[in-house]
Design a protein around this nucleic acid. Sequence first.
DNA 1: TTATATACATAAGAAAATTATGTATAGTGA
DNA 2: TCACTATACATAATTTTCTTATGTATATAA
Lengths: 115, 115
Amino acid sequence: MSNSNLIKGSLQTIILKLLEENDKMYGYEMTQKVKELTAGEIKITEGALYPALHKLEAEGLLTTEVQQVDNRVRKYYSLTKSGKKEVSTKMAELQAFVENMQRIINPNINPSLKF
Amino acid sequence: MSNSNLIKGSLQTIILKLLEENDKMYGYEMTQKVKELTAGEIKITEGALYPALHKLEAEGLLTTEVQQVDNRVRKYYSLTKSGKKEVSTKMAELQAFVENMQRIINPNINPSLKF
DNA sequence: TTATATACATAAGAAAATTATGTATAGTGA
DNA sequence: TCACTATACATAATTTTCTTATGTATATAA
């Protein structure tokens, strides 16, 4: 992850969501996918990505399967059952974060004024 | 800051934006304002807030002025010129972050498909 | 007198990044 | 051929930013 200092804490969310969309991905593929989707604005660094993947696996949210492709090893990750549940949780947290930030930033758009 | 682990890095943005809206605030007041605006969902802890305020002051984005109110000391913070500029930067970063997260989460809403 | 609210502050530790480095294969341009 | 870039994994040292705990002090309500 790089450039913006706001995205700290969102890497797990990104990984889980990518795997919900794509079923099975390897680390390097995730970095490229995010770069592509955000027009190069979010660059996931390996120093952040691999420890995060290992942690999610250790927590039982991801499972791995190693494949040999052209003399090169790829480690494919996919969601476990609890990983799939965690995606919903992370999405709700992101939603709540954005709404709360909007309340702080746009204090004039206040539902309590709509009388 | 507590509860959501997504908001790391957003405390500076919150502080700067509050001071843009309110001109002059003291630390405790900021914690109460954020609690009020987010219906108690974001709680800024003192252990996070005060070091952040000191850092922003050291960077020249905030200035302070101490006031005596009812035998109690209040340290009022306000934006410097470069602090005011930094608000715009932080707002643009937040905007970009949200847009990029939407691109990752909603890959089907892709402008390039609109041919 | 005990708890809560107001108001500041710092210290120890944890979490999550950045930056740097390392290994290995493969292709491309000078 | 040599250097650079891309692919693909990984870890270590360090930094940033937070949590949790603690400390000081005044004031008020139960």
